[in-house]
């Protein structure tokens, strides 16, 4: 497919140095700009997806403010805050990963990808072990599984539906992000990224920031309203 460009392909160096754009792009910059625009469009769809969730939250909170305040009071602000800090750190490291790729610092790139992935793992573990599991034990579950006997408001199952629905969709994005970060790490170890070619690092980095940003909105809306 890239026979037409074979003549212009730089020889020697790493994969990233030799990289040539797909045949339907003029050059690497053209490809990079196009991919970046595609990623931004994709991220706008992500924002709109969560926007639906937030609108649902707003309407139900307006209808049942008591249930939301009572439900929010049963969340652990400590673990929520810790997870916020964890994600903020990962945002920093993923930005550093992109910077390292741009500067061609292979070791730093891999280090930051690993730290970001560890933060993501920590987030999921905290979510499951210290938040979901105890609530499941106490019966604070959405809809038909709700069996918590001390609910103060009859609409509390609704709150747990919003809580579990929004955090589970967010956590799914974190887990997908872990997969993407692992993929980046494997490629980084093969020397796929460098100053001339870091499109994938940049794209995943942007995705990761959006996942963090959604949490920045979820945290106060869910944990800090009582």
């Amino acid at each position: 497919m890239s026979t037409l460009h074979a003549d212009h392909a730089p020889s020697g160096g790493t994969y990233a140095d030799r990289y040539v754009a797909a045949a339907h792009f003029r050059d690497r910059d053209h490809e990079f700009e196009s991919v970046k625009m595609g990623v931004w469009l994709f991220l706008s769809t992500e924002i709109l997806l969560f926007a639906g969730m937030f609108v649902g939250y707003a309407i139900l909170r307006m209808l049942h403010p008591e249930a939301f305040i009572a439900g929010s009071g049963k969340l652990s602000t400590f673990w929520g805050l810790l997870n916020t800090v964890v994600l903020l750190i990962s945002s920093w490291t993923v930005a550093m990963a992109v910077r390292s790729a741009q500067l061609g610092k292979q070791g730093a790139l891999q280090f930051h990808l690993i730290v970001t992935n560890l933060c993501a793992t920590a987030f999921v573990v905290i979510k499951l072990v210290f938040e979901y599991y105890p609530k499941w034990q106490e019966g604070k579950l959405p809809g038909k599984w709700f069996s918590y006997p001390y609910a103060v408001d009859p609409s509390e199952p609704l709150w747990w539906g919003i809580y579990f629905g929004s955090t589970a969709i967010h956590a799914t994005h974190v887990i997908i992000g872990m997969g993407l970060l692992t993929w980046l790490l494997i490629r980084a170890r093969k020397g796929h990224f460098g100053p001339h070619h870091y499109t994938a690092v940049e794209g995943v980095g942007l995705y990761w920031h959006i996942v963090d940003m959604v949490w920045i909105f979820l945290f106060p809306l869910l944990y800090l309203i009582h």
Binding site: G56, L60, H64, G143, L158
Partner: peptide
């Protein structure tokens, strides 16, 4: 899961 967001019987809309 009957989360109730759209179910008037559970307070949904």
């Amino acid at each position: 899961f009957r989360i109730g967001i759209f179910d008037p019987a559970m307070g949904g809309d």
